[in-house]
Amino acid sequence: MLLFPRSAVMTASVRRFNFQKVSKNMELIRASTPLEGQAMKAGAEVVGEAAVGAIRPLVVMLPWLLAKRHHVLKYARLYTDRGLDVLAVRSHPGHLLRPAKGSQLVATELLGYLKNLPGQAPLMLHGFSVGGYLWGEALVQLAKDPSLLSVLSRRVVGQVWDSAVELSEAPAGLARSVFPRSQMLQGFVQKFISTYLSAFREQATRHYELSSQYFHGKPLLSPALLLLSRSDPIGTVSANERLIENWKKAGVPTQVKIWDGSPHVGHFRMYRSEYEEQVVMFLKRLGLGNA
């Protein structure tokens, strides 16, 4: 039995954070301080040190498609409770379907923000599902900006990838995910997606392929933690094993945690304590926060 209405619980959870809208697709999330809380209660705008704060380590979080804010906050707390800020970069299906007018523009926004970020505080990545594709688009653009690439190569000290998707395997995986009990419907969905990828090769598919090439072959060399499930039909273990092999060849120190039974981007929900332990141990190895 709930002691409080669900809406009250969610409101209390949101009050733990301070939000700053950076752009249409990006939001800065910080732990709410007592001073910020008092100003919010008084209806005042938080200014000065309370609003800007000391330059703290920043986690660039790349959620899955259509992730809601309350979903993102569950993961953001892993970092804000330990003294890190989180920049949530959201994606929706339209960004994926039209990369040149969607995902690539979001990647440009993200890199512009990072380029103008003051100070030298360390950065981290935590991506989910197609967040890997979005970061691949960012890597494509970074290759054309050597100075920014050099800066981020120094400042990005770690990366966590949860259920990273290889888009070449997406048709079969999505079909099994949507219709797990019907092979006939799986075949229909798989054929539909494959037809789309073929018909819109210039507008979409070639961008997916280039992003994948950079994500696999030209990554930042900071240590990586991959979080997977053998039951995930979309971010498959086999695809991520190829990613691990490529990253190790490139010189990325890579470790992996594989669960059984959890669905796509569902590891935290099913194995919360283990998931948190993996992230906290990773932060300790990087020397970040008060983990």
Rank of each mutant, 00 (worst) to 15 (best):
M1A: 10
L2Q: 10
V9C: 03
S13C: 10
V14G: 05
F19C: 00
V22E: 10
S23G: 11
E27A: 04
L28W: 06
A31L: 08
T33N: 02
A39T: 09
V47E: 14
G48T: 12
A54F: 09
I55H: 12
V60P: 11
M61A: 06
W64F: 14
L66M: 11
K68R: 15
R69G: 07
H70V: 14
V72N: 00
D81Y: 10
H92A: 03
G94Q: 11
R98H: 15
P99R: 11
Q104V: 11
A107V: 09
T108H: 13
T108F: 11
P118T: 05
A121P: 06
P122R: 05
L123K: 04
H126L: 02
G127P: 03
S129L: 03
L134T: 08
W135R: 00
G136A: 05
E137V: 12
A138F: 08
V140K: 01
P146F: 01
S153Y: 07
V157T: 11
D162K: 03
S163I: 01
E166A: 10
P171F: 12
V178E: 12
F179H: 13
P180F: 07
S182F: 05
Q183D: 14
M184L: 15
M184S: 08
G187W: 11
F192W: 14
L197Q: 15
F200A: 01
R206T: 11
Y208V: 01
Y208Q: 04
S212E: 15
Y214N: 05
H216L: 13
L226D: 04
D232R: 03
I234T: 13
S238R: 15
N240Y: 07
N240S: 08
N240H: 05
E241P: 03
L243Q: 02
L243W: 06
I244V: 15
N246K: 14
G251H: 10
Q255P: 00
W259I: 10
D260P: 01
H267K: 05
F268Q: 11
Y271K: 01
S273K: 12
V280I: 15
F282H: 03
K284E: 15
L286K: 02
N290Q: 14
